[in-house]
């Protein structure tokens, strides 16, 4: 298998899964698309040395790229006062409420939640992926859940007590 065909096969096989993670990380279809494409370009650039395990590389790239993009967009973030206000309870389903609440977490908090509860990584594994300490993962995770409860009280059962 040539490098090019191997890359194409990887994109075909794992593209949808990567897209799901990217959407959870960004909360936006367009940003998710950009995030996946940027990570795949990086993968193509370094394919020779990552072809044995490209998915781990692409995922790690997405996590870091998302936080990096957020830093650049930070200046236009919503002020914190309104940021923590509860989401209007107009959405009929839990899924939509969760989606809206997730969008209002910081990318770091969202990324930690995605790694911990979607990718099923342990605290130690999450810390290694993000290049931070386990303690930081634990506190970010706790803050994220607390904020989810504040943003959407109806999700209290979903996210449990103060963990």
């Amino acid at each position: 298998m040539t490098d090019r065909s191997g890359f194409d096969a990887f994109v075909r096989a794992r593209g949808p899964a990567l897209a799901r993670t990217a959407y959870l990380l960004t909360g936006d279809h367009h940003l998710a698309e950009d995030l996946v494409q940027a990570a795949l370009v990086q993968a193509a650039k370094h394919w020779e040395r990552i072809e044995t395990s490209p998915e781990a590389y692409v995922r790690r790239t997405m996590y870091h790229q998302n936080i990096s993009w957020w830093r650049r967009r930070k200046l236009v973030e919503t002020p914190l006062e309104s940021y923590d206000a509860p989401v209007p309870a107009a959405d009929p389903t839990i899924r939509l409420t969760l989606e809206q609440a997730l969008r209002r977490l910081t990318p770091r908090q969202r990324t930690v939640l995605v790694l911990r509860y979607f990718e099923d990584l342990t605290e130690v594994q999450t810390a290694a992926e993000l290049g931070i300490s386990s303690g930081a993962v634990k506190s970010m995770s706790r803050d994220a859940l607390r904020r989810l409860r504040a943003l959407a009280p109806e999700l209290a059962d979903l996210v449990g007590a103060d963990t």
Binding site: G15, A19, R20, A22, Y23, L24, R95, L98, L158
Partner: peptide
């Protein structure tokens, strides 16, 4: 719930 949210995403 996270998996449900993700599964609802259209292919990019």
């Amino acid at each position: 719930s996270l998996h449900r949210v993700a599964d609802a995403v259209d292919p990019l």
